[in-house]
Simulated scan of single mutants.
Amino acid sequence: MNRSASIKDVANHASVAVGTVSNVLNYPDRVSQRTKDRVLRAINELGFVRNDAARQLRAGHSRTIGLIVLDVGNPFFTSVVRAAEDAAALQGSAVLLGDSGHDASRESNYIDLFQEQRVQGLLISPVGDVTARIDQLRERGVPTVLVDRLADESKYSSVSVDDDAGGYLAARHLLDTGRRRLAFVGGPTSIRQVADRLQGAERAVKEESDATLEVLDSDGQTVLAGRRVGNLLVERGPGELPDGIFCANDLLALGVMQSLTMTHTLRIPEDIALIGYDDIDFAVSAVVPLSSIRQPTEALGRTAIELLAEELESENPKHRAVIFTPELVVRQSTAPAKGSSAG
């Protein structure tokens, strides 16, 4: 098998010094156009590919950015990642993606890997408290921005959505459509976003003296986890069912919807109103179009890259905590209850 052409091979082929080839690759303004053309022609003829790993080792960093998300299978994070990649590309950087899968040890392994790859900086939607790791990264010259998680801006920059406000919007909407026996589906509450959405829902329910909120813990944030919760609800008697369900994300809501509608015994929204969170693309095309709380995924990804750029460009950056406000999107799954005066 033929070995790859080296920088020395290019220099010999172009009849120039190795240093001249290096200048063409890294400091082209230092080389005359005639010499530059000769070196570029040699590179093309030999099929030379620069060793970017070696360049990174010399420079101490790369043109890459590490991004760790909780669940790449969730369309919410997919949209955030895509927006971050687009924004990074405009700055001449590329994004390396890691999926922690809500696993703290797996998250830690990705942080180690990205350090070894000498990334410019790290974007992370953390599983739990990563303060110690972020402090360590900063000491080693790797700035970090929290994504979809609010941080103390005296220490770090972050971009997030006000999930307490989003949870309030969802529950308040169900209440305004005449529902009073609400249920929250989500878990575990050790995930900050889930806890904040539940907290917002509880705040809305407290405003109505005749309203209740039952918490149904899910063993994940997937469609299958939602179906398992839905299956348990189907087994209940008519008087034991909630009349409005708020799910911590759209995947859970779609799973609950599948379970309830497949039995043909419970109807959405006639028997149970259902609202999700994230407003993923599948929400609008569900069997019953799903009401949801929309998060600005493109703005989250783009702003994360902008905040990281600010950290990289300044020796003593001023940290910022950017918080977006979620938006209620109403569809057929939360049509007003019969006899309700809600419009």
Rank of each mutant, 00 (worst) to 15 (best):
S6G: 00
I7Q: 01
V10G: 02
A11K: 07
H13A: 15
H13S: 11
S15Y: 07
S15R: 15
A17C: 07
V18Y: 07
V18D: 08
V21F: 08
N23T: 14
L25C: 00
L25T: 02
D29F: 04
D29M: 01
R30L: 12
R34I: 12
T35S: 01
R38P: 07
L40W: 10
R41C: 14
A42M: 03
A42Y: 11
D52N: 11
A53I: 11
R55Q: 07
H61V: 12
L67K: 00
T78H: 06
R82S: 04
R82Y: 04
E85I: 02
D86L: 08
A89Q: 09
S93A: 15
S93W: 11
S100N: 01
H102V: 01
R106Q: 04
E107Q: 12
Y110Q: 01
I111T: 01
D112T: 07
L113Y: 08
F114E: 05
Q115N: 13
E116G: 15
R118I: 10
V119D: 04
L122W: 06
D129Y: 08
T131Q: 05
A132Y: 10
D135H: 10
R140P: 08
G141P: 00
T144Q: 02
T144E: 13
L146I: 05
D148E: 04
A151V: 02
D152L: 08
D152M: 11
E153V: 13
S158E: 00
D164K: 14
A165T: 13
G166E: 05
L174Q: 09
G178K: 13
R179S: 05
R180W: 09
L182M: 00
A183Q: 10
V185I: 03
P188A: 02
S190A: 06
Q193M: 14
Q193Y: 10
V194A: 00
D196Q: 05
G200P: 05
A201T: 03
V205D: 09
D210P: 12
T212D: 08
D219L: 14
G220P: 08
R227F: 08
R228Q: 12
V229Y: 06
G237K: 04
P238T: 09
G244E: 06
A248G: 05
N249R: 02
A253V: 04
L254C: 07
G255Q: 01
M257Y: 09
T263L: 14
H264S: 15
T265I: 12
I268N: 02
P269R: 09
A273Y: 12
L274Q: 02
L274E: 03
G276N: 08
G276K: 02
D281E: 04
V284I: 14
V284R: 13
V284Y: 03
S285Q: 12
S285A: 08
V287E: 13
V287N: 14
V287L: 13
V288F: 01
S291C: 11
S291D: 04
S291V: 03
P296D: 06
T297M: 09
E298L: 01
L300K: 12
G301I: 09
G301H: 05
G301T: 04
R302K: 12
T303I: 00
T303M: 13
L308R: 08
L308I: 03
E310M: 13
E310V: 06
R320E: 03
R320Q: 14
A321F: 02
I323L: 11
F324L: 11
E327N: 00
V329F: 01
V329E: 12
R331S: 07
T334M: 11
A335E: 10
S340Q: 05
S341Q: 15
